[in-house]
Design a protein around this nucleic acid. Sequence first.
DNA 1: ATCTTGACTTAGACATTGTCTAATGTAAGA
DNA 2: TCTTACATTAGACAATGTCTAAGTCAAGAT
Lengths: 138, 138
Amino acid sequence: MSDLLERLRGRGWRLTAQRRVVAEVLNGDHVHYTADEVHAKAAELLPEISRATVYNTLGELVSLGEIMEVSTDGRAKRYDPNAHHAHQHLVCSQCGTIRDVHPTGDLLAVLPAEERFGFQVAAVEVTYRGMCPNCSAA
Amino acid sequence: MSDLLERLRGRGWRLTAQRRVVAEVLNGDHVHYTADEVHAKAAELLPEISRATVYNTLGELVSLGEIMEVSTDGRAKRYDPNAHHAHQHLVCSQCGTIRDVHPTGDLLAVLPAEERFGFQVAAVEVTYRGMCPNCSAA
DNA sequence: ATCTTGACTTAGACATTGTCTAATGTAAGA
DNA sequence: TCTTACATTAGACAATGTCTAAGTCAAGAT
């Protein structure tokens, strides 16, 4: 993630303070913040950053394939910096905690040709749902 | 779907005109309307029906397991009356068309125990994405 | 058949999430 | 240092969903 800014500069991005702090906030594994969470955390580092800039920057990072958009709850979209390693998500039905997980096998292969209706199927998103250890205990 | 109202009455539901038309709108296969689409179609049958009632009724039907909530685009949730037959969704990346599909095998089994992090995994939702025949042709 | 009552519906305010615009600011090459 | 195209800002606006208080009505009781 640290070379993200370099990659982006190579693509013609201007390296502004705002884009730096958004990248900083998204640094790390198992990060699944909403846009407004990103904005709140970015504002701790750069108080005058606006919501619009955060939304713009997240949208651009998604277009560039640097982060993934995840919507596991039908509410706010979340942003997952772990976009360079294929993975799926495991979500707690109670508290909403999200874990990155790695199912085995070819998830596309289990959809038979006669169930494709002429689509050119390109991608699969899987959400596993269940109770996390914390919520099970409570 | 026609005996849906009977089932609901058995559960203590009052059979109001509003609930009848919502059930009527959701009748059929391959139906994936948003709440506001349901409201618009219901209002053709019962002009004075309010948005709140449609939202309430849809929420109740979801709680009762009679319909499924689907959010394939991070925008409005869609409601799928085909809740009694396990299935997944195939979505056109271009036009958003949704098809019900039936992958083979056990979708839960491909998540190894060491990738479950102590969760009691109960359900899987899969979204296949690709281009539909219409959009491919265009 | 009518009455009664608690569940249901309504309009519209409000909340959340996301998008857009016009004015201003600034990174980076000249 | 200057220039300028790109980026940022505040806030209006849009889309979707939730909530409340007042009125309505389905269905059991009489």
